[in-house]
Computed example of a mutant assay.
Amino acid sequence: MSGKRLDGKVAVVTGAARGVGALLARKLAARGATLALVGLEPEELKGVAASLGGEAAYWHADVTDHEAMGRVAAEVVERFGRVDIVVANAGVATGGPFVDSDARSFDRVIEVNLLGSVATARAFVPALVESRGYLLQIASLAAITPAPMMAAYCASKSGVEAFAHCLRGELSYQGVGVGVGYLSWTDTDMVRGADADEVMRELRGSLPWPLNKTYSLEPAVDRIVRGIVRRAPHVYGQWWLRGMQAVRGSLPGLIALGGAREMRKFAPRLAAGRDARRGLVGAGGAADESARTGR
């Protein structure tokens, strides 16, 4: 494989059972890293770990549980002797108008995406200080621009973006790099779950190019891997996202105008489907709900 190797490096990936996390683990392992996988789906994690070969291992843990994440960090260091890379990737989503949203699901998006990233950093930053390592926080296009029907997700991803920027300022003098990863709509279970809602799918399709496309997973993850290797402060899963940074100040006003038009257009259909549009989307969302309810 071309590019810099990661032999001898230990990488932790949260949300590693599927999607971005699972493929990222495989790509990092292919470059020689030893992987520690964290998530809520033990059978899927076991399968990913087995596919990596070598010393890869997995931990079943909820990233919002500080005690559990502290235990995971201690066990990873005990097993592998160090931690060089941490990717805070675990995330869930829900969609639909805020006024119709299920409060428990809305709050859970904030808990997993934002507070779960905080708990991950709190658990692993001491090890990263020891290794002068690198933390990549997976954010989203949703951190750059607001979007109607995505209030919880946008709030959580804006939060983790700011959190990571703060950590970079605090940790850089100790040799720790901190990056933020941005992804647009990428072909994962989460996005496919959101698209299962016909109205949500049509609303997304009404966005201007290139916001209205779903992008292949592998090229996006390849870009993330290259960013990790470079210890980049910003990593863009799609090339055009870099340009969005230059215009992000003007986006809320534009989104408000366009959003008002689209929400008025779709209001009757949104009202008719409000009862079905509850809970977390996709297989990862279902796994999170199952882990919390025991069902």
Rank of each mutant, 00 (worst) to 15 (best):
M1D: 13
S2L: 03
S2A: 00
R5I: 06
A11V: 03
V12F: 03
R18L: 15
G21Q: 02
G21P: 06
L24V: 12
L24W: 14
L28E: 11
R31E: 09
G32V: 08
T34V: 13
T34S: 14
A36Q: 14
A36F: 00
L37V: 11
V38S: 06
E41S: 08
P42D: 12
P42T: 06
P42R: 02
E43Q: 13
S51R: 09
G54Q: 11
G54D: 13
A56W: 09
A57W: 14
V63W: 00
D65Q: 08
D65G: 08
E67K: 12
A68H: 11
M69I: 07
G70S: 07
V72D: 04
E75F: 09
V77N: 04
R79E: 13
G81T: 08
R82H: 15
A88L: 14
A88C: 15
A90L: 03
G91A: 13
V92H: 01
A93D: 08
T94V: 00
P97F: 05
D102Y: 01
D102E: 09
R104W: 00
R104Q: 00
R104A: 05
D107L: 11
R108L: 02
R108Y: 01
V109G: 00
E111H: 10
E111D: 15
E111F: 00
E111I: 00
N113I: 08
N113L: 00
L114A: 04
L115E: 07
L115M: 12
P126E: 07
L128Y: 13
V129H: 07
S131E: 06
S131C: 10
R132S: 10
R132F: 05
G133F: 03
L136E: 04
I138N: 01
T145E: 03
P148Q: 00
P148L: 02
M149R: 07
M149Y: 12
M150C: 10
V160M: 03
A162F: 04
A162M: 14
H165I: 04
H165P: 02
C166D: 09
L167K: 05
G169N: 14
G169H: 14
L171A: 12
L171E: 13
Y173M: 05
G179E: 01
V180C: 04
Y182D: 00
Y182L: 04
S184Q: 04
W185S: 14
T188I: 08
D189Q: 11
M190G: 10
A194D: 15
A194G: 15
D197T: 07
E198K: 08
E198A: 13
V199Q: 03
M200H: 01
R201T: 05
E202L: 01
P208S: 09
L211K: 01
N212P: 14
K213F: 06
T214N: 11
T214W: 13
S216N: 09
S216G: 12
R223C: 03
R223K: 15
I224K: 07
G227I: 01
R231P: 08
P233E: 12
V235G: 15
Q238G: 07
W239G: 11
W240F: 15
Q245K: 09
G249S: 09
S250R: 11
L254N: 12
I255T: 14
I255Q: 14
L257R: 08
M263K: 06
K265T: 13
K265I: 07
R277K: 06
V281T: 10
G282Y: 12
A283I: 03
A283L: 10
G284M: 06
G285Q: 04
D288A: 04
S290C: 10
R292S: 00
T293D: 05
G294Q: 06
R295L: 11
R295V: 12
